[in-house]
Simulated scan of single mutants.
Amino acid sequence: MTTLYLDTFSGISGDMLLGALLDLGLDFAAFKAQLAKLKVTGFELTAKRVAHSSIYGTDFDVVLDQGTKDQGFVETKHHHDHSEDQHHHHQAAGHHHHGEVRHLKDIEAIINASELSTTVKAQANQVFADIAQAEAVVHAMPVDEVHFHEVGALDSIVDIVGIFVALEMLGIDEVRASELVDGTGFIEVAHGKMPVPVPAVMQMRVGTAIPVRQLMDVPTELITPTGMGVVKALVQDFGPVPTDWTIQKIGYGFGKRQTKQLNALRVLICEKKNASH
């Protein structure tokens, strides 16, 4: 059995996880070919091997045709991208002649109409439904009225679907994780300041036993709604790496935020010792 272990010492977001999975050696060209089955256009994927704190890993990005970049943050009408890109997102969204927003049913329709595997479709739909449900509670509105700005939705669709495509390509049987780590304080968004953990992430913890520890010296968000949604859909157990596991490969995926520490997600491919093959 092949297990993926998420070492979330600096949180988790969609682009961090995809960067880490590519860093394990996943063929980028083959990955892009699989993702093309989504039949969605308007973006380009980039993956660069770079060093942070003298540690090499992969910086993954979804670069939209409008020139804005994915910052690993899901947008709804109350919930915009990181402050440095806010204005770009508003301008980009304004260039659309119609359909500035996508609702959950629109996103599900895109995923379901793709040529992806049944498993990938089901997992991606589960994550989007979970995020939309959390946003609906936070903003006191019906789930079918929660809407993702088109620019943000495209980022999120590529990130979330891409993660499940990558896991399928890597032949991952199960996913485990360390205790999750988030920052603290407040982040600036279009409608003011939002507390960390951000409300959607906190809402997604309701009814779960997912362990989350906050770093009091990191005054920013480290766990995005996409990151939490993927954790909820995938992770079967939390804790340290079991002593009866053999670590076979390690990958690092970098986050976009500048923090006082290494802002990366470390992933391990593990096998149980003496496991029969």
Rank of each mutant, 00 (worst) to 15 (best):
G42H: 06
H97F: 10
R102V: 07
G57S: 13
D106W: 03
S83V: 10
Q123E: 06
E108A: 07
A93S: 09
H97Q: 13
V74K: 00
D65I: 02
G152N: 07
A122F: 04
G94M: 06
Q91W: 07
D61W: 02
E108Q: 13
S117G: 15
V50G: 10
T58A: 09
F73T: 11
E84F: 08
G99W: 11
A129I: 06
N125H: 05
A132S: 14
T68N: 08
V146K: 08
H52V: 15
H103K: 09
V138Q: 06
L116T: 06
Q86W: 00
H98V: 14
F128R: 01
A109E: 12
E145Q: 12
H88Y: 02
T46Y: 04
Q133W: 00
D70T: 11
N112T: 04
G72V: 09
D85M: 11
G94R: 05
H96P: 07
G57I: 06
V143A: 13
R49K: 09
D130S: 06
S53E: 15
P142Q: 09
V120M: 02
H98L: 13
E84P: 03
V127A: 04
T46D: 08
I157E: 02
V146Q: 13
V40E: 02
H139C: 02
T58V: 15
F73E: 13
H98K: 14
T41V: 03
G72T: 11
S83K: 13
Q86F: 00
L154T: 15
G152Y: 04
K48F: 01
A109D: 11
H89E: 08
D70Q: 10
H78A: 08
D61A: 14
I55C: 06
H139D: 03
E135R: 03
I110Y: 02
V151Y: 02
V40F: 01
T119Q: 10
H87M: 07
I111N: 01
A132C: 14
T46E: 15
A140N: 08
M141P: 04
T41L: 02
Q86Y: 00
L104V: 08
T118Q: 14
G99Y: 11
H97E: 13
S117H: 15
H78I: 05
Q66Y: 09
H95D: 00
Q133K: 09
F128M: 02
H80M: 12
N125S: 13
H80S: 14
Q133E: 07
I111M: 02
T68W: 05
D59C: 12
H96C: 07
Q123F: 00
S156A: 11
L45C: 05
V63W: 02
L104E: 05
E135H: 08
H147K: 04
H79N: 13
G67I: 13
D81K: 03
V137N: 08
F60A: 06
A51E: 12
S54Q: 15
T119F: 03
G99V: 08
H95I: 00
Q66K: 05
A136H: 04
H98T: 14
L64S: 04
D85S: 14
A136C: 05
V74F: 07
V138I: 09
L116Q: 13
E145V: 03
A136Y: 05
V143S: 09
S114H: 09
H52Y: 14
L104S: 07
K69L: 11
M141L: 12
D85P: 01
V137E: 09
A136P: 04
V143Q: 13
A136W: 05
A47L: 01
